[in-house]
Design a protein around this nucleic acid. Sequence first.
DNA 1: TGTTATACATCGTAATACGATGTATATTAT
DNA 2: ATAATATACATCGTATTACGATGTATAACA
Lengths: 106, 106
Amino acid sequence: MDIQLKRGLLDACVLAAIKNEDSYGYRIIKDMKPYLEMSESTLYTILKRLEAGNMITVRSVEHEGRLRKYYHITREGLRRIEEFKEDWKEINAIYNFITREETGNE
Amino acid sequence: MDIQLKRGLLDACVLAAIKNEDSYGYRIIKDMKPYLEMSESTLYTILKRLEAGNMITVRSVEHEGRLRKYYHITREGLRRIEEFKEDWKEINAIYNFITREETGNE
DNA sequence: TGTTATACATCGTAATACGATGTATATTAT
DNA sequence: ATAATATACATCGTATTACGATGTATAACA
């Protein structure tokens, strides 16, 4: 899979992964795996970015000796997902341009 | 529009723009404009990349005192478009993951 | 004479995905 | 007992990349 093609979906995908229930890094990766594989370093970069953009909030929880950071989606984050849906309409138009079969010139 | 979202479409879009007829930089930009806006510096970067990847070939033509470089899609380039179509199936699966509405937990 | 359109080209930069690597504990396999 | 795997987060360096800014040059038009 072309990496570039995934790029625009990464942020929205992480937001979607925590949309219905707060989650933490390791689990987010596992939940997304069937749809989109992402390395840990990539995920943590994205989580930092989303936090900086006020799309998510973080809360640390001690769990069996290990640290867990639970991420919670904010109103801003939910809005980001809606924005994504809007953008997708344009993306589909571009997709149609790319895949259209020209008729009448052969 | 989120820039990241466009990234994966750029190369395929340029290939699509010359698929049915050889074209040159300035015209490619104008043809794509209704679907996807791209700066000149971006296009020439992409054309260089596609040429390096043997997706297109170039031929210079003198036209009214000005230089024109006509780009022609190769078999490799056509294959790239087909690859894009294949990848799109996965992209759609990811899209569904992002936009799905969870039922039964509220 | 000045502006816009046509046409290609390069440089610098900021954003970004990811491999490599590191820390630390718990569980499972050999 | 020991090795390997799973869990869990974190950082550094790097290559790719889109694009604004800028440059060169001619033709058409106001």
